[in-house]
Amino acid sequence: MTSTAPAQSSKIKKATAQFMFSHPAHILAQGFGSGLSRIMPGTAGTLFAWLIFDLFSQRWPDIFTPSHWFWIISIGFFVGVWACKITGKNIGVADHGSMVWDEIIAFWLVLLLVTPADLKTQFYAFIIFRFFDMVKPPPIRYFDQRFKGGFGVMFDDIVAAFFTLLSFAVWRHF
């Protein structure tokens, strides 16, 4: 007898706190809850990244040095590939909107490379990064469509970070 009901693993689950706390990968992928925002979760995740970067860098400057941030971001990328793969599989969507670890890591990279900078400059970095992440102009769209799974989730945001930094380089040159 053939069942017409979809398999449980293919059913899309709702992004809730209960889902987030059901696996450590979900907590990370959903940005410690920032991705559960009902309004623009990617933007909420990026704001969370900005807050954490500034807070940690100011509160513990001897620990959160630029070289330590580099290692945190590097390791965070690879851990994020794992967390986003698991979370995407468990929630039923490979790149679910509640998964914001990719925005967090990518924006930390932007902040690492534009700071020290005043609040106004950091705000411009935020706006430019969000533009590239949301609009996904070519070639970001190419990478978003080409690479799948946890790596794909993480990589297109790194490309968005690259274009944000390239925009800053061009802006500062002129």
Rank of each mutant, 00 (worst) to 15 (best):
D54W: 07
A44K: 00
W60C: 11
V93P: 00
Q58S: 13
L47T: 04
S67I: 05
S57E: 12
V110M: 02
L112E: 13
K89M: 02
W71N: 07
L109A: 15
I72Q: 02
G45N: 01
S74A: 14
I63W: 11
F77Q: 00
I73G: 04
N90D: 09
F77K: 03
G92D: 07
F107E: 15
F64W: 14
F70S: 09
I105F: 15
T87W: 03
T43G: 03
A94H: 07
T46M: 11
W82H: 06
L55D: 02
H68Q: 11
F64S: 01
W101A: 15
S98P: 09
L109P: 01
E103T: 02
F77I: 10
S98G: 15
G92E: 12
D102M: 07
W82S: 04
I104F: 11
P66D: 13
V81S: 13
I91E: 02
H96W: 06
L47K: 03
F70W: 10
L55H: 02
Q58K: 11
D95F: 12
F78V: 09
A44L: 07
G42Y: 11
L51Q: 14
I105R: 00
F70E: 10
I63A: 10
I63E: 03
W60D: 10
G45H: 12
L111Y: 03
I73R: 00
G88R: 08
S98R: 11
W82C: 01
A106W: 10
D102S: 04
G88C: 08
H68G: 02
F107M: 14
W108A: 06
N90K: 15
V81K: 15
G88W: 09
I86V: 14
L51T: 10
F56N: 05
G88E: 04
W50M: 04
W69H: 12
A44G: 05
I104W: 13
A106Y: 07
A106L: 03
S67D: 12
I75T: 06
D102K: 04
F78G: 05
D95R: 14
L111C: 13
S74F: 15
S57D: 10
G80P: 12
D102T: 02
W82R: 08
